[in-house]
Design a protein around this nucleic acid. Structure first.
Length: 382
RNA sequence: GGGCGUGUGCCCGAGUGGUUAAUGGGGACGGGCUGUAAACCCGUUGGCUCUGCCUACCUAGGUUCGAAUCCUAGCGCGCCCA
């Protein structure tokens, strides 16, 4: 099979089970991607990533561009070689960083000027073309288009302008993207407005047509951006389903930045295939665990004498080997192992949850899977 | 035995006559974290019959309109001299 050829293995309602090829292996969906912003999933070794059956790992273009710099990553032979992860990787464009952090930036139609206030205050200019060049040199299997992510709430005309900019930049990214072993994902925007979502999806496909007519490749998949930016779940799901299904069926759909277990289960039901989120590693590092009973804060005194497994229904290495009392002790002592183990468990939890979702789709039993999850204690924290 | 110093809330430690249960750490307890500026951030932490009252800065007296802050004695601790 050619790279990024997609096979729809099964459908169950709107939920799908896909496979697609990358230069570093086959990706099976639905799936969750650990975030490794600085070319490391915080607290998690590559060996553990393999044990967890992690598929795609994210890295961040903006952060790697700032440090260690693109040259060093090229010198290493690409981001995979640099961090010694031989599985598929994806780089986020860094658009989210530029627009979510205070970078004193100035956006024009052609690109964006920004100051790297979180590094050294240095001035930079990115255009879609420059960003594509950087991502192709970093060399992950999947690159994300440079887009603009707008917060919530926002005036509709601002969302509309931002969404337009994103689809215009999507086309320029397509035109600038030539690396043969790397796929490019476009990103749908539109905030919480259904009409803007639909227009965004339509414009991305039109851009793709023009790119192909110009001899370029199309999108390997699509990000769904601009959700999970402050709105509550109810608001997101008012548009998410239709916004997802407005994207082509024959390409993976990636809901960006969402990691709440219940949101994943619900979004798969709407037709989403891929997720990434810092939530499992960040909350784990800070002492919170996902579990079949909902979120657990291991700092809580009630676990001090609890020598049972973290999650009684989980068979991950952490749950097999360590007690709640010990994990609480590590967290309370601020021992780095505590954050590492809870990160590992949380990643396993989401990866495994999506494996079960995939099995349910393959068995055409997603609705049952969904109902069972929503009725379970695991959905409590939603 | 003598001299000097010191004694603050669970712990360390600021305050050295005049809002205020009393700065700041730590600890404890709780909450948050969603395309990672996060091994981070935010609350609470004397008691009660809780829009107010009571008890509090080693103990007991005293000075003062007013003291954790000044004085006296005692007790504890530290250092030095015998």
């Amino acid at each position: 099979m050619a790279l990024f050829d997609v096979t729809i293995e099964a459908r169950s309602g709107n939920a799908r089970a896909l496979t697609f090829e990358t230069a570093h292996g086959t990706v099976r969906t639905p799936m969750f991607m650990p975030v490794g912003t600085h070319a490391t999933v915080k607290g998690i070794t590559v060996d553990v990533l393999h044990e967890l059956k992690s598929q795609v790992v994210l890295a961040n273009t903006y952060h790697l561009y700032m440090r260690p710099g693109v040259e060093i990553i090229e010198e290493a032979g690409g981001v995979q070689k640099f961090m010694n992860y031989d599985g598929p990787m994806l780089t986020d464009s860094g658009g989210f960083q530029l627009f979510s952090l205070n970078h004193m930036m100035k956006t024009d139609n052609d690109g964006v000027n920004f100051k790297a206030l979180d590094y050294d205050g240095s001035k930079h200019r990115w255009t879609p073309e420059i960003n594509m060049d950087i991502q192709q040199r970093i060399g992950a299997d999947i690159a994300m288009q440079l887009d603009q992510c707008i917060g919530y709430p926002a005036e509709k005309r601002d969302v509309a302008a931002s969404t337009k900019l994103s689809w215009e930049w999507a086309e320029r990214c397509l035109m600038a993207h030539t690396r043969p072993d790397q796929g490019l994902f476009g990103i749908e925007q539109g905030g919480m407005h259904m009409d803007l979502r639909l227009e965004s999806a339509k414009r991305l496909l039109e851009a793709e047509e023009r790119a192909k007519a110009a001899g370029m490749r199309g999108f390997a998949g699509f990000g769904i951006g601009g959700y999970s930016v402050g709105e509550d779940h109810k608001v997101m799901f008012e548009t998410l389903g239709e916004a997802t299904r407005a994207l082509p069926e024959d390409r993976p759909r990636y809901l960006m930045g969402v990691g709440n277990p219940t949101t994943l289960v619900r979004a798969v039901r709407e037709g989403v295939d891929m997720f990434d989120c810092v939530l499992p590693t960040r909350t784990g590092r800070m002492g919170t665990a996902f579990s079949s009973q909902g979120r657990m804060n291991l700092r809580n005194a009630k676990y001090a004498h609890d020598f049972t497994a973290l999650d009684h229904e989980c068979d991950c290495p952490v749950c097999r080997n360590y007690s709640r009392a010990y994990l609480r002790h590590l967290v309370k002592q601020n021992e780095m192992l505590g954050g590492m183990l809870l990160s590992e468990h949380n990643l396993y939890f989401l990866i495994h949850l999506m494996e079960k979702a995939r099995e349910a789709v393959l068995a055409d039993a997603y609705e049952e899977f969904y109902e069972a999850w929503m009725a379970s204690a695991g959905a409590n924290d939603y």
